Structure formats: C-alpha cells, structure tokens
Amino acid sequence: MPRPPLPTAKQLDLRSSLQTVTDFTVAVPGFKTSAAFFSFLRANLVLPPSTLNSNTSTPLLDPSSSQTLPPLFPSSLATMTSNAEDEVVLAPNPLEGVPPLVTKQLTDEDDKVAALKLIADSIAQQRQQAARAIIFHPLTLAGYILLLAVISNFIYKSRSDLGIVATTSAGVTMACLVAIRGLTGGYLNLAEEFNWKFATNEDGEEDIIIGSRYGEEIIGATILRLEGKGNGSGKKKTKSGKTGGKGVVRAWTVRVKYRGKGVGTELLEEAVKITREKLGNTAEIGFAAEHANSKMILPETFNASFRKREARAAKALENVVESMDTGSKKKR
C-alpha cells in the first residue's frame, strides 16, 4: 500500500497564523500537546507585561524598575571598617588610679606618729616568730613526743582506753600552747614601752624618721641617727669629703602585706642618701647594735631565726651602699 505524502514546509510553518497551527493539530493528532504549548506561548508573547496578573513568584520577562527592588543598605563589615579607621580606641592604663609610692623624710607630726606605731607593731609581731621558733625547734618536738609517749604508756591498758588517751593528749597540747604564749608575751610589753624617747638622743635631738607613703597610708618606716661630727650642725667637710660621722639605722620595718616588694630597699636607699648629704659621700652607715627589734626574751637556743633576719638586713644595707657607690662612680 503506498504511504501518504508528507506535509510540506508550508504546512508546518507555525508563524503564519494561529489557524494554521489549529488545522495542523487536527490533521496530526500526535502533536496536540505541542500545539497547545505553542498556542499558550504565542498568547503570552503577544500580550504586554502590564496586562498580566501573575503571582509574585512568576518571573518577569522585561527589565524591572528600581521601585520594585528593596533599598540597598551599606554592609555591616564596611561600617565596622570605616569606624575602625576613623576612631582610635586607646587601651585603658592599668596603672590608672594607683597612688604613687613616695619615700622621704617625714616632717609632719601625724606622719611621725604613724611611723612609730608601725615600728611598735613590728616589735609585737616578733611574738609570732618566737612562738614558731619554739614549736618547730627539734628539742621542743622531741620533748612533746616523749611526754605524749609517757602519758599514753601510763593510761593505755586496753583498746577501751583510746578515748581517754586522745582526750588527755589534746589537753597536754593545749597546755603546751598556753605555755608558749606566756613565754612569748614579753614582746607585747616591749611594743607598749616603745615611744618617742627611742627616737631622741641624749642631747634631746630628734632622730631622722623616714617613711614610705602609699596613698594616705604609711607602709614603711626607718629611724636614722647621725652620730659624730657634721650631723647637721653646718661644719665644713674636709678635702676628702669626710666629716668624721656615721649614720646608724635604729629601726627598719615594712607593713606585713607590703613586704618583699622593694619598699624596704627604698627606705635604706633614702637613709644612705640623707647620710651622704649631711656627712659626706664617704660616710659609713650601718645598723645599730641596739635597734628597735634587737631585744630577745627567749634563750639563745630559740633565736636562730632572729639572727638570720638581722644578717639579711645587714646584707641588704650593704648591697644598697654598693649599688649607690657604683652608680655615683659611673656618673663621674
């Protein structure tokens, strides 16, 4: 059977008219879906965009005006960058509000009284040091253990006596602590006896009182006595710079919570400076044999810690003198 002739190019021209597409659809049933799609596409291409009533999700085929877009705001990163360039943020000063430490000779009576009270407190504080020296001394520990052993051997007979042994041992311990408290109580009496007379020489002249002030508080004190010639009487110095006198440190202390921070060193430096100004650059300076903290009420066996403290103080003064002498030589 011969095949029907194929449609010509003229019959397939979709751009001629909508009627041609419709006729072709009827003639070719297999192209019904395609014909409907082309009909819809042609209708949308013919109508202007302004006449369409589509949803907001339907994309626009023509360029949209700027009125339909949300306004553009500057990026937050750009704002941060501009602020960082325009404004310079200064880091807070960690020392802001911290009062300075001033070490100098005291002239006000109230300051002198505060310095003397501080020295009296240092004398009273020797009681704790003496108590520790007694408690931790090898002889004390050996005697305490021996005493507990004798009491336990005398009382303990069976396991039921353990409670009595423990109670008795606690009582003995309390009695020993009370005895140590009584032995060291003399330092409180020494602190109470400390007064203005200590800072006055035989001629009635007042010693030089040096203080370290931190804010409104006196945290360190030193009593300096100038002995011999040239102690402020206005006598002339010799060619060698000597005046025949010496400086004697009779008290040197710092408040407990400020110790170990260099306050004591500044006090000694000021004492050396004043001594050299009044007695010459080669004047000697040292600690007095009978300084404010020199009296000891315990037997010499328990005074090892006090002797070590005196040795450390003398070494500290020696180091200050050497450093100041070295500094003066370099300046020359």
Rank of each mutant, 00 (worst) to 15 (best):
P2N: 11
R3N: 07
P5H: 10
L6F: 12
R15H: 14
T20K: 14
T22L: 14
V28K: 11
V28P: 02
F40Q: 12
N44G: 08
N44I: 14
N53Y: 09
S54Y: 09
T56P: 05
T56G: 12
T56H: 12
S57M: 13
T58R: 11
Q67Y: 04
Q67S: 13
P70A: 02
P71N: 01
N83V: 09
V89R: 04
P94E: 01
P99V: 11
L106P: 00
L106M: 01
A114C: 05
L116T: 02
K117A: 13
K117G: 06
A131W: 00
R132E: 06
F136T: 07
F136K: 08
T140L: 00
L141D: 12
G143P: 00
G143F: 11
I145Q: 10
V150P: 00
I151G: 02
F154T: 12
I155V: 11
A175K: 13
A175Q: 15
L177I: 12
A179C: 10
G185L: 04
F194G: 10
F194I: 10
K197H: 10
N201G: 04
D203E: 07
D207P: 02
I208F: 02
I210T: 01
S212E: 01
E217V: 11
I219M: 04
I223D: 06
K239T: 10
T243N: 04
T253P: 00
K257Y: 02
G262I: 03
T265N: 08
L267Y: 12
L267R: 07
I274F: 01
T275A: 05
R276A: 06
G280L: 09
H291D: 15
A292I: 07
N293S: 10
E300G: 00
N303C: 07
A304R: 09
K308D: 14
V321T: 13
V321N: 02
